[in-house]
Design a protein around this nucleic acid. Structure first.
Lengths: 112, 112
DNA sequence: ATGATATACCTCGCCTGTCAAGGTATTATT
DNA sequence: AATAATACCTTGACAGGCGAGGTATATCAT
């Protein structure tokens, strides 16, 4: 099942921050990693991705810099800030809470 | 932690449908049940709730009728349709997939 | 009586994140 | 020369959440 982004709306920032915890990266690479990690079940639309970078940077959760130019298209790298790490920790707690709440509300068990 | 609805955006319909599987109910009651079931961690804003009812009914996933008038404010009851039950089954699968995807993307383990 | 609180419903208009569609540029492959 | 892959970006439309406002009934405290 391919997930629509509207289902994951609000989790985009957390997903990006989490990927950056493994090291600085750039848009195209991050998206490929996301797609691989989910077995193709999920990937960002480009507009969504770059909108998110902009938002994250404006909120001080990531910083960006142009990569050293080798051959090929230029790459803008992103790095998590301290604030970004703190935010990710919050988001992870929030995700655990989300799972708890959703499972309590839509699971089968309660109805049997 | 109190969850914002933006985190659960896209899951509102599934939550409502799941509550109605236990029997016909009305807005105020559904919301109280949701709040109780989540230990106060979640509840719909009224505008969100009634907007969702309208959407669900327009999509043929629920039907509504006014309750038999006893004393007190009038109540509009909602019932799940066959299409609603089918949709809920889909939504539940989707939720399982969402958990799988999110855990694959933001969990700690992968980084260690 | 009067005000407050709980129950119970509804609408309007703003806000925010997603994304289709459009664009630019480089390199490799056919 | 054309196509595809890499890599970035912006604009405007759309949809769901929700603050703020409204209506109405019943109970409880002052």
């Amino acid at each position: 099942m391919a997930l629509s982004a509207d289902i994951l709306r609000g989790h985009t920032d957390a997903i990006i921050l989490a990927q950056l915890m493994a090291g600085d990266s750039y848009g195209y690479q991050i998206n490929k990693t996301v797609t691989e990690r989910t077995g193709g079940a999920y990937g960002f639309k480009e507009a969504t991705l770059y909108t998110a970078f902009k938002r994250l940077e404006q909120n001080g959760l990531i910083t960006s810099y142009w990569g050293e130019e080798g051959p090929g298209a230029r790459r803008r790298y992103y790095a998590v800030t301290e604030a970004g790490m703190a935010k990710l920790a919050e988001d992870r707690q929030e995700w655990n809470e989300t799972k708890r709440v959703m499972d309590a509300l839509i699971s089968w068990k309660e109805e049997l």
